[in-house]
Design a protein around this nucleic acid. Structure first.
Lengths: 147, 147
DNA sequence: TTGCTTGCAAAGGATTTGCAACATG
DNA sequence: CATGTTGCAAATCCTTTGCAAGCAA
């Protein structure tokens, strides 16, 4: 699966006359290995652990490329920084976000997905994508809250 | 309605030992008058048309106050800039956004709202708020697309 | 008066870009 | 070898902050 994602990315690069480099391979591998919603800085740290010479600009440039290649997805939890999650092998999903501890859960509800389509077509829109983030308290934080 | 919103804001200010000033009154009125999702800069322009001496920092500071007072709501359509819509007299709603022309529509679907609660409680979360933005093509842009 | 407010400019934080040196196909 | 690529630092963009002067209560 990891090798395959790399294959997809190389094909993407080839199609645009771009090249695979050791920095790109390292960043891609690091990105795929880590789960969750990481910031550019977190990814840069992970990459630097393997090769301290990689600069942050390269990480930003790769993030943009991976987004174009369809391997990364940008999310925004209202913190004023971009976060990325990998799309490869991850189906579409929405987020449940704890306002206290920041933990997130990926969720999907077919019923909601269906109603979104209906809602859009009611207004004559054709839907391309959507984002839905639900904010609240996770079970653990609700417990602490009561004490 | 406008006068009333001003009343709400003055009460909010009073409760915090803050003062009403002519800049604040002007920014509030300009904010309420304009519909849609405006950026800080757009609001600043509107305000400057009435009083060119108002600085952008004051607009940013007011936006934060209006948010605290519950009169403004920050939204983010992924452009890297904050947009604000007024909450006063506007019930909760989600957005339908045209990817081509940028037009937005405010929508609500009770069915979706209900399923969101169910989805959250299925994971033990208590819900505080949510945001849902649907991206696609509006009826006008779909027509143009076909030609 | 007291101390909240303002405008300005400087500071900040995240992300982008120019450039000379370097590596890939 | 011709071009893409890199790291660095400088530059941007949006937003926040420090400060001296100004104004509301």
């Amino acid at each position: 699966m990891k090798a395959n994602a790399k294959g997809i990315f190389e094909e993407f690069l080839g199609g645009k006359g771009l090249r695979m480099t050791k920095q790109r391979a390292l960043i891609l591998a690091s990105f795929l290995k880590k789960e969750g919603h990481m910031t550019s800085e977190e990814l840069h740290e992970t990459v630097k652990a393997k090769d301290p010479s990689v600069g942050r600009a390269t990480v930003y440039r790769m993030l943009k490329l991976m987004k174009e290649a369809g391997l990364a997805h940008e999310v925004d939890f209202g913190e004023g920084i971009a976060r990325y999650e990998h799309k490869y092998g991850h189906a579409h999903h929405d987020h449940l976000i704890c306002l206290r501890c920041g933990r997130t859960r990926e969720v999907v509800d077919e019923g909601i997905e269906g109603l979104q389509e209906k809602l859009a077509s009611r207004y004559g829109f054709s839907l391309t994508s959507h984002k839905m983030d639900l904010y609240g308290l996770c079970p653990e934080c609700r417990k602490k809250q009561k004490k």
